[in-house]
């Protein structure tokens, strides 16, 4: 199998040529800083990921609940019921933002009440309010204005748009998800910056080594490889530990479903649990490209 050129290059840069690695002296405790940074960043990333996924679930659940319907409950003396119902329907027909409206039939009323009072309820004889289902258009109607017009037309009509309060919440959840993704991007960028700094420091500290390597005929890719390999492996290992710690952290969070279901629980569900395992290779890739870029541009300072 033949790899495409950039991939083959990447593979060559990572290939376990122990000798290539040995030409740069081991860097002692500073090596830990890269692993630690990658670990801490990945730990944070797991939470940002969990936050994004959880708020995403929340946002979509709440948006689904916003079925864009409201109910008007009309109480009126029996002899006026029909007239007021028609008046309200006429009013709704001219209200901007209302897509459609219709009065529930007696059958539907009975179906609604059946669970409480049994199927053979004599709906017609009870002084039940008439229900009018309003389907909202996009953009929606002005709730306050509609209430006032209803009051003028039918004093016994009550507009119940209980699902409307959830809209800002659904929007907030969507924003939260966006912030989560943004955090992940920032964490990744910060890690790239940290690795670049560390790689540059390492190259500067090993200037003498680099000079000798150039003098004996090493090309830039050879020299870069020693550094790239090192930082990639360190970032990968650190990120592995960080991801594991983050996952454990998420798993021991108390379940919040019981607490009113307001928070769906900061966690992963189903295949989402696999996502944190993508973070270590991702961190390795970030370190790979950051170090490679840093090394190849720094090496130009040496002839």
């Amino acid at each position: 199998m033949k790899l495409p050129k950039p991939l083959a290059r990447a593979a060559a840069l990572l290939s376990s040529d122990a000798r290539a690695d040995r030409v740069v002296p081991p860097s002692g405790h500073t090596a830990w800083l890269t692993s630690f940074t990658a670990g801490a960043m990945t730990f944070l990333c797991v939470f940002a990921l969990a936050l994004s996924l959880a708020s995403g679930r929340l946002a979509s659940r709440w948006s689904d609940a916003l079925a864009r319907t409201a109910t008007i409950r009309l109480s009126a003396p029996p002899e006026q019921m029909q007239a007021q119902t028609e008046a309200i329907l006429a009013l709704l027909a001219t209200t901007p933002g209302v897509e459609s409206a219709r009065a529930l039939t007696d059958e539907e009323n009975r179906a609604l009440l059946a669970p409480w009072f049994g199927a053979d309820l004599p709906v017609e004889e009870l002084p039940l309010p008439r229900l009018i289902e309003v389907t909202e258009a996009d953009p929606g109607y002005d709730g306050e204005g509609l209430r006032q017009r209803l009051a003028a037309e039918a004093p016994g009509a009550v507009l119940d748009d209980h699902t409307r309060w959830r809209r800002p919440l659904a929007e907030a959840a969507g924003r939260l998800r966006l912030l989560g993704w943004l955090s992940i991007v920032l964490i990744g960028t910060a890690m790239a910056a940290m690795v670049t700094l560390a790689a540059n420091a390492s190259l500067a500290a090993n200037a003498q080594v680099v000079r000798v390597l150039r003098l004996v005929g090493a090309d830039d890719h050879y020299i870069a490889r020693a550094f790239v390999r090192r930082f990639t492996l360190r970032a990968f290992a650190g990120a592995g530990a960080g991801a594991l710690a983050g996952l454990i952290g998420i798993m021991i969070l108390p379940r919040t479903d019981a607490a009113g279901g307001f928070l769906t629980g900061l966690g992963f569900s189903g295949a989402g649990w696999l996502l944190p395992f993508l973070l270590p290779p991702l961190a390795g890739a970030v370190a790979f490209f950051a170090t490679r870029h840093a090394a190849l541009s720094k090496l130009r300072e040496f002839r």
């Binding site: 000798r19 030409v23 390597l213 150039r214």
Partner: peptide
């Protein structure tokens, strides 16, 4: 540089590698 052998005035080696590895360095890097 692999075709031109140079002995520098300020001879420099990789101080963390033994002499034999240093002498072989041009082979290693190529």
């Amino acid at each position: 540089r692999r075709r031109v052998g140079v002995v520098h005035q300020d001879v420099q080696f990789l101080d963390h590698l033994p002499l034999a590895a240093n002498v072989q360095l041009p082979l290693t890097v190529s």
